[in-house]
Simulated scan of single mutants.
Amino acid sequence: MTKTILITGASSGIGAGMAREFAQKGYNLAICARRLERLESLKQELESQYGIQVIAKTLDVTDYDQVFVVFKAFKAEFGTIDRIIVNAGVGDGRRIGKGNFSINRATVETNFISALAQCEAAVEIFRAQNSGHLVMISSMSAIRGMPKHLTAYAASKAGVAHLAEGIRAELLDSPIKVSTIFPGYIRTELNEGAKKLPFEVDDKTGSRLLVQAIEKQRVKAYVPQWPWLPIGMAMKILPLKWVNKLG
Rank of each mutant, 00 (worst) to 15 (best):
S179P: 06
E215S: 12
P227W: 12
E189W: 02
E165F: 01
A152R: 09
T180I: 09
A164R: 01
E170S: 11
N191I: 11
E165L: 07
G159Q: 02
G206T: 07
Y185G: 07
V219F: 07
G206A: 01
D203Q: 14
T205L: 04
E215W: 10
P230A: 08
A154P: 06
P183K: 03
L163N: 09
V160Y: 03
A158W: 06
I167A: 04
L190T: 07
G232H: 15
I214E: 12
P227Y: 11
V160R: 07
R208G: 08
T205D: 10
S207H: 13
T205G: 07
A194L: 05
P230H: 12
V211L: 02
P198M: 01
G232S: 13
V223S: 08
E192L: 00
K196D: 13
K220A: 13
F199V: 14
Q225V: 13
S179I: 05
P175Q: 02
P198E: 03
K204S: 06
S207Y: 11
L209N: 10
L171I: 06
L172A: 13
Y185E: 03
K177G: 01
V223T: 11
A155W: 01
K196C: 04
D202K: 02
R218M: 05
S207D: 04
K195C: 03
P198R: 10
G232K: 15
A155N: 04
T180M: 04
A158S: 15
A154M: 01
A154H: 05
L190M: 15
W228F: 15
F182N: 11
Q212S: 13
I231M: 12
A213V: 03
A194Y: 11
G193W: 00
Y153V: 06
K204D: 04
A169D: 14
R218S: 14
L229D: 13
D203L: 14
P183F: 02
T180R: 02
L229A: 14
